[in-house]
Design a protein around this nucleic acid. Structure first.
Lengths: 331, 331
DNA sequence: TTGTACGCGTTATCAA
DNA sequence: TTGATAACGCGTACAA
């Protein structure tokens, strides 16, 4: 790895290092002749600018980080994809940093360490700002709080941490779940099972939306995080809707209670994605989040913070669902 | 974003900047007293070391890049996860860089630009080495070739580019597909449809393995990338195996030919993952790649190149399948 | 149009 | 044990 520097080129071309620097940046104040000569020499020697040095001198990296726990849900990947796209448009490079990557031997502690380390590094000059997707509540918010207080540009996406004055953009989950539940009933369901957990803001909003819709429609439902003691699957009627945040939860639940669900007329209501056949449901209704708009808003807000150096008014940016898809079996 | 530097701390504590540097790195040659004083001041002022400067001075970033087109297949995510884990163990930080993130308006050119940009940046001081997953054949290999020739440490994973002398690690796809086909026949299939494309090394190896197995067992098959002109789905018998690289391809094929497949006794053979019920198949046999071993080998090889500064003997490291899973329907 | 000199923040090598 | 000083590679006012 012989590293070629501006100095080396300067030596070969017999000019000063600063002339080389200007020539390679196509500064108009350099003779066309020597500019060509210098470019040729640079190419011949295999010169590559050192980004560390350039960023250190320039005071900016034009780099953003997208910090999130994992990429195992396809919606996460879609967010990263679109965020990267919008960052590129604004002439920034976006890097993905995941902090649940290291949860093999000792899940909780390792993961927390890795999370802290990322938050820590974000403010150490490697990035100009960060989009953060906080999937759960972190026990230790001090590092994040420090970062915010020091004025490091941050935008939350999808989920948020209530106690921090940071702008965030998320789906209007309550309205989305309301509509999703309504459509499930419209598709024939006469009772419903809600699989939304209560532990994060997103699921909480979805639970609230679905509850409201079902109450308005007079459709009875149970929530699986607080199953009534006397409830057994046997009391189910023949037309049931099951709503949850991801295929994973619905399928797991269906398999576990397969004996009671077989033969029923099932409608699944889910967010973002469904792979394969709807089975055992007759129909799957999918609420697809608008990842493109979400990331567009998030990245623009972040860059505004960076370039204007002024914190955007922190607040919630609620994005509507992009579309509702209906999936019916082919067999 | 008031940036606090060593200089600021030095001013407050009335010592030299180099003493501060040593104190904060817990160098034993600093008085316990002043070390405490300096640490306190650093904490009070909210000092964060600038990683750009540190890496520039130190000549190394202890950072690896995992460059890949996308993360839409779950196996990709698993590779990144494990690679990050192994990098952390060796005290490196691994970043994920995707180059198909930018394929919305003008797929081919944009994506190529982004790919080139990443390859270019990898060698510009931001990383010490890179694990590269080349999903397809890139039209322009010159940048990559340059990087290799300049001695930048690289390891290919999963797929590879034949003309480059770079070590790579991949699954023993031929043996895997051979076994997968054998198991499908064992599960009752009397003929087979192979959906492996011919365009990349991985699929080619899988195709070859499956072909060999089926010939050995005397089971007739068709390849869907070169369907015989006179072939129509109607000639299918009642027990058919369909083999492909991912759920996506199998399901798409099944839906397209639903009318001819309904009622048949189907066995699916697939790699890595299957979400939801096997429907329309009776059984899905899944060949799960050993991502942990693959990334372990790749990262270790990469770090060996970096630290010993000697190119490891380039060659193919073939990893066996981790396990074969069998998925049967619950309904 | 080109060269000089300094700054970016940190580490490391000398003296003292 | 500490302080001065030189790298690290590049950008850029300022002077020539």
């Amino acid at each position: 790895m012989a590293k070629v520097t501006l100095q080396d080129i300067a030596g070969v071309c017999d000019v000063d290092i600063s002339t080389v620097s200007r020539a390679l940046r196509n500064d108009s104040r350099v003779t066309t002749a020597s500019r060509a000569r210098i470019h040729a020499a640079a190419k011949r020697l295999g010169y590559r600018p050192n980004l560390l040095a350039r960023n250190l001198a320039g005071g900016s990296t034009r780099t953003l980080w997208f910090i999130l726990p994992s990429l195992d849900a396809s919606v996460d990947y879609r967010l990263v994809r679109h965020a990267s796209h919008h960052a590129n448009i604004r002439n920034y490079t976006l890097f993905t940093a995941m902090h649940d990557c290291d949860t093999f031997t000792s899940p909780s502690s390792q993961s927390l360490d890795h999370y802290s380390e990322l938050i820590e590094r974000a403010g150490q000059g490697l990035a100009d700002g960060a989009v953060i997707l906080p999937r759960r509540f972190y026990s230790d918010l001090s590092l994040l709080k420090d970062l915010v207080l020091r004025g490091f540009p941050i935008v939350f996406i999808d989920n948020y941490v209530e106690s921090l004055p940071v702008p965030f953009v998320t789906t209007d989950n309550q309205t989305a779940a309301h509509e999703l539940a309504r459509r499930c009933v419209q598709a024939g369901a006469r009772e419903a099972i809600l699989l939304f957990e209560e532990q994060n803001a997103v699921a909480k909003a979805r639970l609230a939306g679905a509850q409201t819709a079902l109450r308005e429609l007079g459709v009875p439902f149970v929530e699986m995080h607080q199953v009534p003691a006397d409830w057994t699957p046997e009391i189910l009627g023949s037309s049931v809707a099951i709503l949850g945040s991801a295929q994973h939860y619905l399928h797991q639940f269906a398999v576990r209670h397969a004996e009671h669900l077989t033969g029923k007329n099932l409608v699944f209501g889910v967010f973002d994605d469904w792979l394969g056949e709807p089975s055992p449901a007759r129909t799957v209704i999918i609420a697809v989040q608008d990842c493109e708009t979400m990331t567009h808003r998030a990245v623009n807000n972040l860059i505004a913070q960076i370039e204007k150096k002024t914190q955007e008014a922190p607040g919630m940016d609620l994005i509507p669902i992009r579309e509702f898809k209906i999936l019916s079996g082919s067999f």
